[in-house]
Computed example of a mutant assay.
Amino acid sequence: MNGNEHLHADTGATSEMFVERSLNEIRFWSRIMKEHSLFLRLGFRAEDTQLIQEANQFYRIFERIEQTAHSLSNQTDPEQIKKFNSEVKQSATGIFVFKRKVLGLILSCQLPGANNFPLLVDHISREANYFRKRLIELNEGKLKPLPEAIIKENVFFLRIMADHAKFIGHLLDPSERKLIDIAQNFSNDFDQLMYQAIDIESMKPQSQTVPLLDQFLDQNRVSVASLRDFKKTARDLIEQCKIKSIIHPLLADHVFREADRFLEIIDMFDAHLTSSNNQSS
């Protein structure tokens, strides 16, 4: 069962499910936050010693969180997990604040020559905010009704995928014309899908019908699977030193894992949509 699973609000969540979902979220996102710390540090200038120090500190914090999450199991006491979620939420809030501070410095031209795109810093801060909100939801036992969750999660992740395509296009060497072209096409595709999702979101609750949501998920799945495969190819080529870019091999793997997670979420939503539709018919 995937940690992002949303159930109907009226079914309630068992303690075991709460533990499983919490650990799934923390294991995935703590690694992502740890890697964000590394990417930020690599983009700072040599003289940005304070920022480098802060980034290293967050790297160590999330490395410890990741290790702790892997040392716990689905049989861990739910109260212990609830406390752990609260502690991790504090760290996620901390790195969110740090990322927004860095964004402010970049946009006010106080880090000339640094290599972190403003959109990338905004992107990773949105992910930190998503993570902290997931932990709050889990601890409060709040589960959004399935149709609303489907739309909200897709709006969030489609924008993340659109951003990834843009970053890949801008971090490839300008001479990699064909790959840049492919990345640009993915960027356009996901921009369109994101705006479609926003349109469906603004039509709520009337748009929350099973046929519409089913088509919505199917359409998104095709594009996400295609982007995931492109990212996997790019990652392998970067690791084999076959293409020219300034993309860190870990960043290539990082964006691949996020696309893979989005696919898992789509499949999980689709399965629930199908089962709930069968139950109601």
Rank of each mutant, 00 (worst) to 15 (best):
S207H: 05
I198T: 07
E87I: 11
Q192L: 14
L7F: 12
P211A: 06
Q67S: 13
E87D: 11
V255N: 03
L213T: 07
L72P: 00
L135W: 05
S125I: 03
D10C: 11
S22D: 01
V19R: 03
K101H: 10
A271G: 14
N56L: 05
K101V: 03
H6I: 11
H8V: 06
K142T: 12
I32N: 01
A162P: 03
F28R: 05
L7I: 13
R159D: 08
F18V: 03
N74C: 12
R60V: 09
A13M: 09
P205H: 05
T49R: 09
K231E: 11
L135T: 06
E66A: 09
Q192D: 15
R27N: 05
R261K: 09
K166P: 05
S86Q: 15
K204C: 06
R64K: 15
F262T: 10
A165H: 00
F62E: 00
I243D: 00
D77S: 11
A252S: 07
T93F: 14
K178H: 15
N4L: 14
D181V: 06
Q219M: 11
F190L: 03
D181S: 15
L7H: 13
K133P: 07
L120I: 14
L105Y: 06
Q80E: 12
E153D: 15
K101R: 14
T76N: 01
D229Y: 14
F186P: 02
A252V: 05
L120R: 07
I95Y: 06
L7S: 12
A197I: 00
S280I: 15
H123S: 00
K152M: 09
K89I: 07
I265V: 12
E16Y: 07
T233Y: 04
Q206A: 06
I238W: 00
E87A: 08
P112F: 05
A183M: 03
E264N: 14
M268R: 14
Q80A: 12
S281R: 15
A149G: 02
D236G: 01
Y195K: 12
L146I: 11
G12M: 01
S37A: 14
V155E: 02
F28Q: 04
H272A: 05
I247H: 02
R159V: 11
L237Y: 02
A128C: 08
F230N: 07
I200R: 05
D270S: 14
I168P: 02
P147H: 07
